[in-house]
Design a protein around this nucleic acid. Sequence first.
DNA 1: TCCAAAACAGGATGATCATCCTGTTTATAA
DNA 2: TTATAAACAGGATGATCATCCTGTTTTGGA
Lengths: 184, 184
Amino acid sequence: MRKKVLDVAEESFQARGYHASSLGDLMAAAGVSGGALHHHFPAKKALALAVIDERVAAAVEETWIAPVLAAASAREGVRAVFEAVAAQLEQQGFVHGCPLNNLAHELSLADPDFRAALAGIFSAWRQAIADKISADQRAGREQGTDPQRFAALVVATYSGAMSMAKTAQDATVLRDCLAALGET
Amino acid sequence: MRKKVLDVAEESFQARGYHASSLGDLMAAAGVSGGALHHHFPAKKALALAVIDERVAAAVEETWIAPVLAAASAREGVRAVFEAVAAQLEQQGFVHGCPLNNLAHELSLADPDFRAALAGIFSAWRQAIADKISADQRAGREQGTDPQRFAALVVATYSGAMSMAKTAQDATVLRDCLAALGET
DNA sequence: TCCAAAACAGGATGATCATCCTGTTTATAA
DNA sequence: TTATAAACAGGATGATCATCCTGTTTTGGA
């Protein structure tokens, strides 16, 4: 039950956002009664925090952190993730945007708990890329690159490109940004 | 009256977002009756479209397009805008984020009219930067730079950096991104 | 001055929504 | 088997909100 609710909430928050996802909709989509939902998540906020902590963080880990750390280099990892995401968006035909960025915009000013949870994910994401650059440097590459700054640039570029792709409903800008980033 | 409503709506949409700004709040803040508001804006959507067309577009023009076009070069203009925004955020102590990006996230999937209006602003923003790069090239500079790609990178980086700055409530990431962008 | 249209006032209305409350069922441990 | 708590059901409730409706005031042109 709890898992089913998180599944439905994760998808609905991504597709429609937090405010536009009513608990009634989520209950119907998950096939769950009001009592059951209230039992597992006393308030809508608790549900959203669970989605952030358990699903959004995992999505960033799976989509970005693990592939970058596993790549031959930071730059190669970044390139691979951009291309994989662009390819997937082009295939599915519509762009919902980055789950982390979507929720960050909607919730980070509304509630300090939301803000802290989301900021932590952004921070871990940047840190993973910075660490990979540092590893590259210990292997004799990327000597002129500042790890923190490069990581900030990558995450900002991706987040912003996803924003534009979502607004334009066109993933082309992701490829433009990747190409421009490659000249860094 | 209409101007007063737009003033209040622009600020509230920026500070709290569209959904979280109730018409009751806006009426109270603007000192306007329900009838007056309904007279000028038959629905909340009409108000939001007016804010986007008349205020958000103007803010992008004023903050980004005019300064970049007036600068000695595209890169110098971009640098100046990043620094000006970062300095202003550090001074005021809190980060509401980019008005265009905020509304784009909240509204572009909710309604096609919103999406089209917002996409047009993003497009004009990118085009202005690309045009400036082209002008630089005619003057013998930036020979290796692709105008469209560079513009996409700049706008994406700024938008994403503002997202992170808003979530972290810290403008430092803007300066990190500017520094990394300078090595392009 | 007079009239018509725009501008404005303020409350009514219906719908939506998150939360809560009272029971019932199911699992678990003694 | 039985006691106990967790899990779940389903409706009640109160608040909020966008929209609409009926009047009143103001404005601008003939």
